[in-house]
Simulated scan of single mutants.
Amino acid sequence: MAGRLAVFGARIIRTPKVPSGTVAMSGHGSGAPDFSHNIGKREVVAYGINGNPVYFDRTDYPLPAIRWKEPTPDILALRQKEQGDWKNLSIEEKKALYRASFCQTFAEFKASSPEWKSIVGIALIFVSFGIWLYYGLVAFVYPPLPDSFKEENRRAQLRRLLDLQTNPIQGISSKWDYEKNQWKK
C-alpha cells in the first residue's frame, strides 16, 4: 500500500500542470494562452490584471483589458468614423462608443448602492427579535431576583460593610468618615 502511494505521489510530482485553455510552454506551439472561449469576440485592448483578459469596473484599475461588448456592425462603423476628426461625431455616437468599451462611467460605479438599507433593516429585525427574546426570558423563564437586590437590603449590606470596616486602606471603608458618620469629601 505504501509503495503504491509513493509511486502515485511521484507521478503527480512529475506530471506538469497546465491550466485549461493554455498551450504548454515546451517549445512547441505559440505558448500564448487562448482565452477566446471565455471572452468571445470582444477585443483585447490592454494587458489586464495579471495578464488575464477580464473586465472590471474599478477605480484603481481604470482601463480593463477587454472591451465591454462584442463588436457589432454599427460599432465597427463608428470605430471607423472615430479614426477621423472627433468633431464630426455627435454626442450620441460618442456615448455609443464609450458604452461599447465600458459598462459604467466612474460616477456610476462609484455611486453607493441602496443595498445598505436592506442590510440595516435585516440587522434591526434581528436586534429587535433578540430584545423581545430577552424580555420573554426575563418574564417567563428566569426566577425573580432575590431579596438582596432590593434597595433597602443593598443599603443594609453597605452599612454592614462600613461597620465591619472592610478594606479600610483603599476600599469602601477608606471613603467613609466614621467620626462625622458620612462620606468623605
Rank of each mutant, 00 (worst) to 15 (best):
M1P: 01
A2Y: 00
G3K: 07
L5T: 02
L5P: 00
L5E: 04
A6L: 14
V7M: 00
V7E: 13
V7L: 12
F8K: 02
A10V: 09
A10L: 12
A10H: 10
T15E: 11
P16C: 07
V18F: 02
S20F: 09
G21S: 08
T22F: 03
T22Q: 00
H28D: 08
H28E: 12
G29N: 03
S30Y: 01
G31P: 01
G31M: 09
P33A: 15
D34S: 08
H37K: 14
N38L: 15
E43L: 12
E43G: 10
E43S: 12
E43N: 06
E43Q: 13
E43K: 06
V44Q: 09
V45D: 10
A46D: 15
G48D: 13
I49N: 05
P53F: 01
Y55A: 14
D57W: 13
D57H: 14
D57Y: 05
R58S: 10
R58W: 03
D60I: 12
D60Y: 05
P62H: 09
P62D: 14
P62Y: 06
P62G: 13
P64E: 10
W68V: 15
E70L: 08
P71E: 11
P71H: 08
P71T: 05
P73T: 06
P73G: 10
I75H: 12
L76S: 12
A77H: 01
A77L: 08
R79Q: 08
K81P: 05
Q83H: 06
Q83S: 08
D85S: 14
K87P: 00
N88Y: 04
N88I: 02
K95E: 14
A96Y: 02
A96T: 10
L97D: 05
Y98V: 01
R99M: 09
A100H: 12
S101I: 02
T105Q: 03
F106Y: 03
E108P: 04
S112M: 07
P114G: 14
P114D: 15
E115Q: 13
E115M: 12
E115T: 11
I119G: 03
I119W: 12
G121Q: 09
G121K: 07
G121L: 05
I122E: 13
I122R: 11
I125S: 01
I125R: 01
G130E: 14
G130Y: 00
I131H: 00
I131F: 02
W132P: 00
L137C: 05
L137H: 05
V141W: 08
Y142T: 10
P144R: 03
P144F: 06
L145E: 11
S148A: 07
F149D: 15
E151N: 08
E152G: 06
N153C: 07
N153K: 05
R155S: 04
A156H: 00
A156P: 07
A156W: 07
R160G: 05
L161T: 11
L162D: 04
D163R: 10
T166N: 03
I169Y: 08
Q170A: 09
Q170G: 08
D177N: 14
D177Q: 06
Y178C: 12
E179C: 06
K180H: 13
Q182L: 11
Q182F: 08
W183A: 07
